[in-house]
Design a binder for these strands. Sequence first.
DNA 1: TTGTTGACGCTCA
DNA 2: CTGAGCGCCAACA
Length: 106
Amino acid sequence: MSFNDDVFEVVRLIPNGRVTSYGAIAKYLGDARASRRIGWALNKSFTVNPSVPAHRVVNRLGMLSGALHFPPARSMAQELENEGIIVKEGQVVELDRLFWDPMTEL
DNA sequence: TTGTTGACGCTCA
DNA sequence: CTGAGCGCCAACA
């Protein structure tokens, strides 16, 4: 199934220390309404190789809405901070500066 | 087969 | 400014 693969591919292209949103990815894939499905795709991202940096994907406000779905062993916020991204109150700080839009960057 | 759900995003009150 | 509601559509019970 290619939708998931496309999602993974785009997510893997996100530069280190940057983040993007479900909507941006959906739009890039041609279906701006697929944002909800991006989450589904990312669920499986933990079972594929090479691994997908799903922690770099947040909702359009920069909130870590998917943090609860991360494997217990990993912390979404922590992974982000490891890359230099500041996460406060479950939200990415300076989102506008760290945001990476595949539509304009690719 | 039908109904509910959700890692979203937008609009309206 | 805040909160509630709605459209989307695949996965799941």
